[in-house]
Amino acid sequence: MSTQEGASAVAEEQARIAEEVRAMAAKDQPAIEMIDVHKWYGEFHVLRDINLRVKAGERIVVCGPSGSGKSTLIRCINRLEEHQRGRIIVDGIELSDDLKRIDEIRREVGMVFQHFNLFPHLTILENCTLAPVWVRKMPKRQAEEIAMEYLTRVKIPEQAHKYPGQLSGGQQQRVAIARSLCMSPKIMLFDEPTSALDPEMIKEVLDVMVDLAQSGMTMVCVTHEMGFARQVADRVIFMDAGQVIEQNVPAEFFENPQHERTKLFLSQILH
């Protein structure tokens, strides 16, 4: 009974997301728009002249050498980092110092981190229900049902009452994805989600991400998993020295890179 309700809740959510994606696409409103964005860490010019439009439902993979600013770029989208010049508009709301608007955006933008960042003092289920209950003011029972559905979707419902420290890295990252999805975000950001995982655990996380991409979620992923990029990305963006060097559809990007830096990078990572 309850799982059925949960399942229908998830189905409703997915229908809602699809509806929103269609609505936004119809209005031609981009999910994310970055216009001439610059950012400095002290004297260091970490992001330079970033112009990026992400359409609703689009899947973007951002890659580049370490220190190229790709993590900083996606962390600017939910204001974990502050940009100093240019405009960033997410889901129709412009990022500014207005804390209320930032929280409004953060409610609609899920984020998955390299080091999972699960809350170690809470069980897996509590990790998943915390934001829906405290941010969305959802009744606890309903939040738990939805959380169980997403935990089932990432294939670890049996771990719900354990603590993060008792799970493997791959399991923790799948929980982190489920935790973000419980807020029914319109956009998902992935910041090198498989970089801290043991080789054997990468696939289980990528499988979840592929599944999510195929459900129509708007996704921006910083990752070096080129197989994932080929399989699901609509566009691959290559960054170096704080700027976008090249972007293209995956087939073209991998088969026919234009910029010398891109060619060098691809030759280093594709063996």
Binding site: N78, R106, G110, F113, N117, F119, P120, W134, V135, R179
Partner: peptide, 24 residues
């Protein structure tokens, strides 16, 4: 990362402190 994860889900300062940071 704990602060960032809490902030990224839209928790404000006091809920973040009360629910995530202070218990730990």
């Amino acid at each position: 990362g704990q602060y960032e994860a809490a902030a990224a889900m839209g928790l404000g300062y006091w809920p973040m402190m009360y629910l995530i940071i202070l218990p730990q």
